[in-house]
Design a protein around this nucleic acid. Structure first.
Length: 421
RNA sequence: GGAGAGGUGGCCGAGUGGUCGAAGGCGCACGCCUGGAAAGUGUGUAUACACCAAAAGUGUAUCCAGGGUUCGAAUCCCUGUCUCUCCGCCA
């Protein structure tokens, strides 16, 4: 959520920002609604003041005649209030819905444009040249008896899957490796609920219901399946005021993530790349405004370190305006080289969301001058399991069908490669 | 799942429908006292929004949430929610 007062002073900048983000939003209209809402509120406040005054004046003893005059006066005010309140409520609701749709500001150094305009900052790691026909992760996974999409579909539907045999160990190994890694970087690890209240999901900036939602919701309950533990970690701190010395707060979450992928059918959707459920370790930080930019770079570094330790060749993208999503002010993605697709594919994403989420979730801190200010919030992927599994299977496949495992995983796997049966 | 009890300020806790933004205590802040500290003592101590150039001040809202009754609700009614206790079920 955006600060309305700031918005009024830089309405044009935000209007351009919406254009850059390919959003059809009329900033002027939102400001008009705000003014209307404010005016109505003032009228209401005056009426209420009168009502309170009348009620106060009736406290003492008085003759029945005097009293009945005042009661009539009160009744009239009550009626007037009731009517005004209705109008105010309508305008206020419209204002609030529109305000919530306004995206965050965009970092001045983020590229402007759509997906194709994201800037490639660097490439790291050698792309392997294969002297045998390359297989994609599905072929490899089925040959090694690691995957079962048919059973997933039978039990839960399209894009659900079973992991089997070494793939199970691999998921557990990746999770444990990632948790230890982020702990070594000072993050407090959490296993979070896989569901969250609708209000929490909204607070983080996801749209829980409606046609284009990517979120599963539970029928007849105020609950959603989370799309990332960012939701539960952020929700944990809703309505909190931190002391300055408690910041920065660095936490990590392990959870299952659920995404409907509505409208995403067919698009890069082969195999494990785009699924309805997956496991993920997520980094999350709450900090003072001045620390946020540094943290974003830190998050990226950790993500790179993980890719490097896993020997996955990757590139880093500075994400362009239209691809940021509403909450992010600036975002870096890491894309792994995936030989089975013969191109890069996104495996991590880290964002500086500034105070966009903390305004909705009401997360603040008290600074040295005892002023209460909104915190800044950041998030970043440590490991999104299925896409790392794809990267490993495809990059480290051998001609005989076996797959070498990255050295850092050997202790967790209890093996160095996945052999053909 | 059944039965009951309860949600009041940073915390504890009082509160007959009007004098309640809310007693009292703790904590916290500042002062006095002291050689210094403790004890004692005095004062202050919520948030949001609006008006105001700003401060001061004023108004409105907030006693879990949402509705309702009433001229007037922390207080009465309904619904939801959360916590606790007991019973049942269960890995």
């Amino acid at each position: 959520m955006i600060d309305i007062k700031k918005l009024i002073t830089n309405a044009e900048e935000m209007q351009q920002n919406c254009i850059n983000r390919h959003l059809d939003i009329d900033i002027k209209q939102v400001i008009t609604l705000y003014e209307q809402q404010k005016g109505l509120k003032q009228e209401l406040d005056q009426l209420r003041a009168k009502r309170n005054e009348v009620a106060q004046s009736m406290k003492g003893k008085m003759s029945p005649e005097e009293r009945s005059v005042l009661i009539e006066k009160g009744k009239a005010l009550k009626e007037e209030l009731g009517e005004k309140e209705e109008g105010y409520k309508e305008v206020k609701e419209e204002y609030q819905t529109q305000l919530l749709q306004i995206p965050n500001y965009t970092a001045p150094d983020s590229p402007i444009g759509g997906e194709e305009d994201s800037t490639e900052l660097k490439r790291v790691g050698e792309i392997r040249k294969f002297d045998f026909p390359v297989k994609d992760h599905l072929e490899i996974g089925y040959a090694l008896d690691l995957l079962d999409f048919e059973a997933g579909a039978k039990v839960a539907g399209q894009k659900f899957y079973f992991l089997k045999n070494e793939a199970v160990l691999l998921e557990l190994a990746l999770v444990q490796y990632a948790i230890k890694k982020v702990m070594s970087k000072g993050f407090i690890p959490h296993i979070t609920p896989d569901m969250a209240r609708t209000s929490v999901v909204e607070g983080i900036g996801f749209n829980p219901r409606g046609e284009s939602t990517n979120i599963y919701s539970i029928e007849n309950q105020d609950l959603c399946m989370i799309g990332t533990s960012e939701i539960t970690l952020g929700g944990k701190y809703a309505d909190t005021i931190f002391k300055e010395e408690e910041l920065p707060l660095k936490v990590a979450g392990f959870s299952h993530c659920f995404r409907t992928e509505a409208g995403g059918a067919g698009r890069e959707s082969k195999g494990l790349y785009r699924v309805h459920q997956f496991s993920k370790v997520e980094m999350f930080a709450i900090c003072k405004p001045e620390d946020a930019e540094g943290f974003l770079e830190d998050f990226l570094k950790i993500e790179e370190e993980i890719c490097q330790e896993l020997n996955i060749p990757y590139r880093v993208l500075d994400i362009a305006s239209a691809d940021l999503g509403n909450p992010a002010y600036k975002k870096y993605d890491i894309e792994a080289w995936l030989p089975g697709r013969d191109k890069y594919g996104e495996i991590t994403s880290t964002s500086n969301c500034t105070d966009y989420q903390s305004r909705r979730l009401n997360i603040k801190y008290k600074n040295k001058d005892n002023e209460t200010k909104f915190v800044y919030m950041l998030n970043g992927t440590a490991i999104a399991v299925p896409r790392i599994i794809i990267s490993i299977l495809e990059n480290f496949q051998n001609e005989d069908g076996s797959v070498d495992l990255p050295e850092v995983l050997h202790p967790y796997m209890g093996m160095k490669k996945i052999e053909r049966k």
